[in-house]
């Protein structure tokens, strides 16, 4: 297992987990989201190829009400 930081919380994931696996597991694969790892934006087209590394800082954002 490796540790990934997701929106500030630490989550243990299997070695070899892709972003696609992660967002599917989090039940947000179908949602309108944008995602960055260690400050780098990962396009949705790379979700299946990008494999999580130990200590990755992942931020997942969406649009909310605001002025």
């Amino acid at each position: 297992m490796i540790a990934a930081h997701i929106n500030g919380d630490i989550k243990q994931v299997e070695i070899g987990t892709t972003i696609f696996n992660l967002v599917t597991d989090l039940d947000i694969a179908h949602k309108k989201i944008a995602l960055e790892i260690n400050g780098e934006i990962i396009p949705r087209s790379h979700f299946k190829s990008r494999i999580l590394q130990d200590g990755d800082q992942i931020e997942i954002v969406t649009a909310v009400g605001g002025g």
Binding site: N7, T62, A63, G66
Partner: peptide
Amino acid sequence: TVAIRRTNL
């Protein structure tokens, strides 16, 4: 307008 924030998990 919309704001950008962490998504609910």
